[in-house]
Design a protein around this nucleic acid. Structure first.
Lengths: 359, 359
DNA sequence: CTGAAAGCGCTTACAG
DNA sequence: CTGAAAGCGCTTACAG
């Protein structure tokens, strides 16, 4: 009766009813045993018979039936604004997926493409499917308004912050990123450290500038507002950066992100300056292609995107199951986890040394 | 009774039973009407009452209950090997998600990270959740063995091909990509066209070479095996490419992919050659960062990743619902769709002109 | 045209 | 310790 080897394709699912018959027990007993709730409730010998029968028949619980009864699906809705335009998105999702798997959940993913109607319909669909909670994820740190329709269920905001500050979320510690970058240049002995910021109206704009400022103030050098220049994402911003570098003659440059570092590299080449010799340059993001392809390779501050994805699911599950996040066993390699018991967790960045900053 | 505005949070789901009571009809009638199966079965006036009651109560069908009964979940398992390492992955997923939404499905996504055990457990989990079919997706064209455990359900392979050639799939038309690239150089007037290939043991290796060969043979120039050189992904492959360019003095270079184009750019710069003047260079992939950041910008052949994701879901749904793929209404902008009625659909690439090939 | 009833595969009071 | 029974919210023969 028992097929050896696992190669057989079980087209049809074995039910609890069949296990009950095969083991001569009741469905109740089978359910109890297979859910490990049989202590003091089912005769150990019967339990053993049930376990063997389940094993032999290849019984797998039907999640649908269980969910209909328990009102819990062990399913999480992952709503993201876009996933194709940055390399970070993939890591965020990957971390979330891994956490879901480790915690016994599965992710239902939808992409809104920043379209409110698609978002509304997507959320409605996910609710019909009975998700236990929502991840509301963004591809870069933004201030967002969480849709009303999410509020009926536990929700965690990922790589964004709720405009009202009430929905828990995980986001980068922006000042920490630029502080780390600046400190790296200070400890490399640089004195005239230029900050190349952004004109984009996003939280990172002010927060990264403040991290730079704090690091300078904490150093013997002090902060000098002269050494701050904002440029846009537009490549034509070359001129602004070019002029600033000619005029200010920095020996170190902290870039708002890696994209800006590419502009800075261009400027320096044009001016006959050598990155890592005449002037050190450091970025933020450690984007694989950029940091790898620039010569010399760009030293940059890396954000823990995978970890943020992982933590966000851990946080959400702790809310859903009303458990202390500390009790969820998380992989140790996840490193310095922000305290998930707090509503808002901040993720630190780490300097990845390449060759654009002297050791 | 009726709340105006959609701002209210319905914490609890309205059931068919409540709609039946509110409208004074039976659950049967409600179900029939709400599923548009009431023609000739329910009095139109009753149907109207039911519809109004459902509307007012904000009734949303419970997918779980429906699935338990119908054995269909309108859920698709999306199994991918990795999603964080290439920019294409996101587009594949995005296309799949959009198609799922358009066709009334939702995606359960898992990532195997190329780990067989994770894959097995993931598949088992998805089956317990009752997915109607599987997408087995890869981040670059590979020959794969489809796990036995998938075979019980409709399955479509995405950006890969089944080693036995029996599971339907969607993959790039590799020869077409390199043919298009080569033809672009030929029509730009180049005569000594070098092919910089790869040493990696992947299907694209031979197939792209054959596309180049065919294009050369179809041209007045003819194919010359001398003009083919393979280099690895390793950046140290610089030397191989450098030597070949010095020796062969090509006036055009077809690169296996954009990564190799970056090496070619480096070689040319070292040799004092100007891309787009001394020698035209064309890549394959049109990777956002590479094609944008190289100077001059890299002309490259772009693969329709978003479309492949979309088509794969359309194909899968057509199998699940036993419908002619042609009946699934697909967005027109999806362009030249490969025939989804065939088992294996091949996706073409398109030359995206930048500045590295003369017009 | 209509609706009571069965049943999908589970879990869980409840009565023994 | 045990198991019959109810019920989760649907769909769908079936009998009227």
């Amino acid at each position: 009766m028992l097929c050896r080897g696992g190669d057989t394709v079980e087209t049809v699912m074995v039910t609890i009813q069949e296990v009950a018959q095969a083991s001569g027990a009741s469905k109740t007993a089978v359910s109890l045993v297979l859910n490990n709730k049989d202590a003091k409730r089912v005769n150990p010998q019967v339990a053993e018979r049930i376990r063997r029968a389940a094993e032999e028949l290849g019984y797998r619980p039907n999640s649908i039936a269980r969910s209909l009864r328990t009102k819990r699906t062990r399913t999480l809705g992952f709503i993201s604004d876009e996933i194709a335009s940055t390399p970070f998105a993939g890591k965020l999702i990957l971390g979330a997926q891994d956490a879901a798997r480790d915690l016994g959940y599965v992710l239902l993913t939808i992409n809104t493409n920043n379209d409110a109607q698609i978002e509304d319909e997507g959320i409605a669909a996910l609710r019909r499917y009975g998700v236990d909670g929502f991840l509301y994820a963004f591809m870069y740190h933004r201030v967002v308004r969480v849709p009303q329709s999410l509020l009926a269920l536990p929700t965690v905001v990922l790589d964004a912050e709720d405009v009202d500050g009430v929905i828990p979320g995980i986001m980068p510690d922006e000042p920490h990123l630029s502080y780390a970058a600046t400190e790296r240049l200070v400890s490399a002995g640089r004195r005239r450290i230029l900050y190349v910021g952004t004109t984009a109206p996003i939280p990172a704009r002010e927060q990264r500038l403040s991290g730079y400022r704090q690091a300078m103030e904490d150093s013997p050098i002090g902060f000098d507002a002269e050494l701050v220049v904002d440029i846009s994402d537009d490549v034509d911003a070359f001129d602004v950066a070019d002029e600033a570098i000619r005029r200010l003659r920095p020996d170190g440059i902290v870039c708002f992100n890696d994209i800006r570092a590419t502009v800075v590299y261009d400027c320096m080449k044009t001016q006959g300056l050598v990155v890592g010799e005449d002037t050190d340059v450091i970025g933020i993001d450690n984007q694989p292609f950029i940091a790898q392809m620039l010569r010399p390779r760009l030293t940059s501050v890396e954000l823990p995107h995978y970890e943020m994805g992982y933590w966000s699911v851990a946080k959400l599950v702790s809310i859903i199951e009303d458990r202390d996040p500390a009790d969820l066993v998380l992989p140790e390699q996840l490193g310095e986890m922000p305290s998930l018991t707090q509503s808002h967790a901040l993720a630190y960045g780490k300097v990845i040394d390449k060759q654009s900053v002297r050791m």
